[in-house]
Computed example of a mutant assay.
Amino acid sequence: MIDVKTLSDRIDVLETRLTFQDETIETLNKTITEQWLKIDALTRQVASLSERLLEAEANAPGAANEPPPHY
């Protein structure tokens, strides 16, 4: 039969692992949240730059597909 000391040691090991896992999960959660915020900011920046590029292309003098004047 397993004695009380062995069971107590096993419980201590499991509690230590659980505490470590909880800390790891919290750290990962913070990291993912920070990355999500950065991705969101970059996505908005890319959308803004795309709009600016479309405006610049629309306001550019002459059509981009016109052949040069020597043709």
Rank of each mutant, 00 (worst) to 15 (best):
M1N: 12
G62A: 01
I25A: 03
A63H: 04
R17H: 04
K5E: 13
L14E: 00
I32T: 14
P67M: 05
P68R: 07
E34Q: 12
E23N: 14
D22S: 03
D40R: 15
M1K: 14
L54E: 09
E23S: 07
S50F: 09
R17S: 07
D40P: 01
V4Q: 14
P67T: 03
D3I: 10
L53P: 02
P69H: 08
E57F: 01
L7A: 05
E23C: 01
E55I: 05
W36L: 11
V4H: 08
I2E: 14
E66D: 12
K30V: 09
I25G: 03
T33M: 10
P69W: 11
V4A: 11
P69D: 01
L53M: 09
G62L: 06
I11Q: 02
P68C: 00
Q45S: 13
S48Y: 10
M1W: 13
I2S: 09
P67F: 00
P68H: 08
A58P: 11
T33C: 01
A60G: 01
P69G: 05
P69S: 07
K38G: 06
E34T: 10
Q45K: 14
A60N: 05
I32Y: 08
G62W: 02
A47V: 13
L49F: 10
E51L: 06
E51F: 00
I39Y: 06
A41M: 11
T19E: 05
Y71P: 06
L54F: 00
Y71H: 14
G62C: 04
I32M: 12
T16K: 15
A56K: 11
K38P: 03
D22A: 10
E57V: 07
K38A: 15
R17E: 04
S50A: 08
P61S: 04
S50M: 09
E26C: 04
K38F: 02
K5V: 13
A63F: 02
I2C: 04
L28H: 08
V13K: 13
T27C: 01
P68I: 07
D9K: 13
T16V: 13
T33F: 07
H70T: 15
E34V: 02
T24Y: 09
T6N: 07
L54P: 02
Q45N: 10
T16M: 04
R17M: 01
R10M: 04
V13W: 03
I2L: 13
P67L: 02
T31M: 08
E23T: 09
E57I: 14
L28P: 00
T33G: 02
E15F: 14
I11S: 05
E26H: 05
E55G: 07
V46L: 12
Q35K: 05
N65A: 09
E66P: 03
V46M: 12
D12H: 08
L14H: 10
A63K: 05
I11R: 08
T43R: 12
N59T: 11
S50Y: 04
D9R: 15
I39Q: 11
L14Q: 08
H70C: 14
R17T: 11
L18A: 09
H70E: 15
E51S: 12
K5Q: 15
T27G: 03
I25S: 03
Q21R: 11
S8M: 04
S8I: 13
T33K: 15
N59V: 02
G62Y: 01
R44F: 00
V46E: 06
I32V: 15
A47W: 08
A41G: 10
L14T: 07
N65L: 00
